[in-house]
Nucleic acid binder design. Structure first.
Length: 425
DNA sequence: TCTGGGGTCCTAGGACCC
DNA sequence: TCTGGGGTCCTAGGACCC
């Protein structure tokens, strides 16, 4: 029995999450902003129709937003994460093998469904998700993951597809591939698109007919795989268990410019705390730490400075004070006075499972059981009562560097205090 | 004048994804 | 005035070793 892939993709996911709890916003233009309320990272179809592009800086679109009464949300990742897991759980009930590909996408491996029944199968799944979670999705089906992705794009694009499109055994497969811009193919970004368009390779169909060797030379083995996958040869397997993480990062742009080392220190200490929390959540310890700082690259007239430094720890650790000590000393080495900073960040890598830490016999300080329990308590409190409930003193109290979140919706599904209230009169 | 070659590891940079 | 964040993978080139 042959197997096929389905790509299930939530439509305008962040916007759809907000709409579940604000149904009056259906058919209205809505955008969700990036961290710091900087740019639009999700748009409803109505907002797209107004011409607001992906990544549009908010300040450049103020006028349109006001004029058309676009509803604006700061991003509420706690809400989106919870809605995402509801969708993913449901998918798990309908397909034996699911790869959660991102917060709003999943690949399903489909076996035992005859070719001619694929569309109906996907349509039922779509209705089920809409009814149970309230999120509209699009589903694309194909013999390979790349083709499932293509089919998904087409399902969103072509009128009459009703959110579901199958390329499996489709008689007009090439004609359909010809409707998709080469830059929309999975694995083709802006650089490769430029190169391809120069050579008159304009659509997914053109790319399918490219010589694999040429693709390999000009787009690495990944490009070659894309060509084969478009032709229907499986090169990219489904990954039902996520591979172990190789890096954990945390960084933010500042809500307002920062020049003082002390403010950088406060911000960084809170990011290190957050990164370490993620680390412990995965039951990992970090063997190395990198810190980077940068000025605002968008300011043409301001002097620019960006730099990064890495140090490896004598022994892998997930104890925040140990990580902070290393981070703090790296920051001292990186900091140069006289610049206006926009961003600071931390990356933890050299990750190992916390029960497999290689011990260093010359180490002067090792995390004790007491310290491990301290971190556990800290994480529990912050998980239960919300991120940042318990903070390190090093993170400061006024936190002028903190990001902007002026349009935040409540955490409807994860906080008792913020449950939706319905009034009957 | 002649002056090896091959393998491995690490890193930086560049591409991609959502 | 205001422009996100968190990842992965591949490749080329240098360092180093025998």
């Amino acid at each position: 029995m042959s197997s096929y892939y389905a790509l299930v993709d939530c439509n305008n996911f962040y916007v759809s999450c907000e709409r579940v709890f604000r149904p009056a916003l259906k058919h209205r233009p809505v955008v969700v902003l990036s961290n710091n309320d900087g740019c639009c990272v999700a748009r409803s179809n109505e907002a797209k129709a107004l011409g607001i592009p992906m990544g549009a800086p908010l300040h450049q679109w103020k006028e349109i937003i006001r004029k058309h009464r676009v509803t604006v949300f700061s991003s509420n990742y706690v809400l989106y994460g919870d809605m995402s897991s509801r969708v993913m759980n449901l998918l798990g009930e309908h397909a034996p093998r699911v790869e959660v590909y991102s917060i709003d996408e999943a690949f399903l491996e489909i076996t035992g469904v005859p070719q001619e029944a694929l569309r109906a199968y996907a349509c039922r799944l779509r209705v089920r998700i809409l009814q149970s979670v309230g999120i509209p999705v699009s589903i694309g089906l194909g013999e390979t993951k790349t083709l499932a992705k293509v089919a998904n794009r087409l399902a969103k694009k072509l009128p009459g597809s009703n959110g579901v499109l199958s390329l499996v055994g489709h008689p007009d497969k090439e004609a359909l591939l010809d409707k998709l811009d080469v830059g929309e193919v999975w694995g083709v970004g802006s650089q490769y698109k430029r190169k391809l368009v120069q050579r008159k390779i304009l659509t997914a169909r053109d790319l399918m007919h490219v010589e694999p060797d040429w693709a390999r030379q000009n787009m690495t083995v990944c490009g070659m795989r894309t060509v084969y996958e478009l032709r229907g040869t499986k090169c990219i397997p489904i990954e039902t268990v996520p591979p172990p993480k190789k890096a954990i990062a945390c960084s933010r742009s500042f809500g307002q410019p920062v020049t003082e080392l002390n403010s950088l220190r406060e911000a960084l200490s809170s990011y290190v705390g957050r990164a370490a929390e993620k680390l412990r959540g995965e039951r990992l310890a970090a063997g190395a730490i990198q810190i980077y700082i940068a000025t605002n690259p968008f300011l043409d007239n301001a002097p620019q400075y960006a730099n990064a430094k890495t140090s490896s720890l004598p022994e892998a650790s997930s104890y925040t004070p140990v990580l902070w000590e290393a981070a703090s000393s790296l920051l001292d080495q990186l900091y140069k006075p006289g610049f206006v900073y926009k961003k600071v960040g931390v990356v933890l890598f050299g990750l190992v499972p916390e029960n497999l830490i290689q011990l260093d016999c010359f180490i002067t300080h090792r995390s004790t059981e007491r310290e491990r329990r301290l971190m556990m308590t800290l994480d529990n409190v912050n998980q239960r009562w919300g991120m940042g409930t318990l903070n390190y003193a090093a993170s400061g109290l006024c936190q002028a560097w903190k990001m902007k979140r002026a349009h935040l919706s409540p955490s409807y599904t994860t906080s008792w205090a913020e449950l939706l209230v319905v009034n009957a009169r």
